[in-house]
Simulated assay, not measured.
Amino acid sequence: MEKNSENKQPVVENHKIDDRIAAVRDLIFGENMQQYSTEFADVYDQIKTLKDQTNKNLSESVTNLENKLADLESLMEHKFQDLNDDLDKRLADLDDEKADRKKLGKALEKIALMLQE
C-alpha cells in the first residue's frame, strides 16, 4: 500500500512543476508564441493556396498538351492520307500494260521528299 502512495506523489509533484514551467513560459514567450502561431497559420494557408494553384496549372497544361497532341495526330493522318491518295493517283496514271519505272521512281522520290518536310 505504501508503494502506491509513493508512486502517486511524484506524479503530482511533476504535474505541479510542469504547470509552473508552462506558466513561466507563457509569461516570457506568450505574446511571441501567439504571433508565431499566426504567422505559421498564414504560411500554411499560402502553401495550400500555392499547391492548389499548381495542381490547377498542371491540370490545364496536361489538357493543353493532350489537345495539341490530338491536333498533331489529326494533321499527320491527313497528311498521310493525302500522300496515299497522291500515290494511288500516280500509280493509276501509269500504263496498266507496262509500268514506267522512271515515273514510279520519280513519284516515290517526290513522296519521300514530302515526308521529310
Rank of each mutant, 00 (worst) to 15 (best):
M1A: 13
M1P: 05
K3T: 10
N4G: 06
N4P: 03
E6M: 11
E6W: 07
K8M: 14
H15E: 15
K16R: 15
I17A: 12
I17E: 14
D18W: 11
D19Y: 13
D19I: 15
I21G: 06
I21N: 12
A22W: 04
V24K: 06
V24E: 03
L27I: 11
I28E: 06
F29Q: 08
N32L: 15
Q34R: 12
S37Q: 14
S37Y: 05
F40V: 13
A41C: 04
D45C: 08
D45A: 15
Q46D: 11
I47L: 13
K48A: 08
L50I: 02
K51H: 10
Q53T: 14
T54H: 13
N55L: 13
L58A: 11
S61E: 11
V62M: 07
V62H: 09
T63V: 10
N64A: 13
L65G: 03
L65W: 04
L65S: 08
N67R: 14
N67S: 13
K68R: 11
D71L: 09
D71G: 06
L72D: 10
E73R: 06
E73A: 06
S74F: 02
L75E: 13
M76V: 12
E77S: 10
Q81S: 14
D82Y: 00
L83S: 04
L83Y: 04
L83F: 04
N84P: 00
N84M: 03
N84E: 14
D86W: 05
D86H: 08
D88W: 01
R90N: 11
L91S: 04
L94C: 06
D95Y: 00
E97F: 14
E97R: 10
E97C: 04
A99H: 07
A99Y: 03
K102C: 01
K102W: 02
K102G: 02
K103Q: 08
K103F: 02
L104K: 02
K106V: 03
A107F: 02
A107Q: 03
A107T: 05
L108E: 00
E109W: 05
I111N: 00
A112K: 09
L113T: 04
M114Q: 12
M114D: 09
L115A: 01
L115N: 01
Q116F: 05
E117P: 01
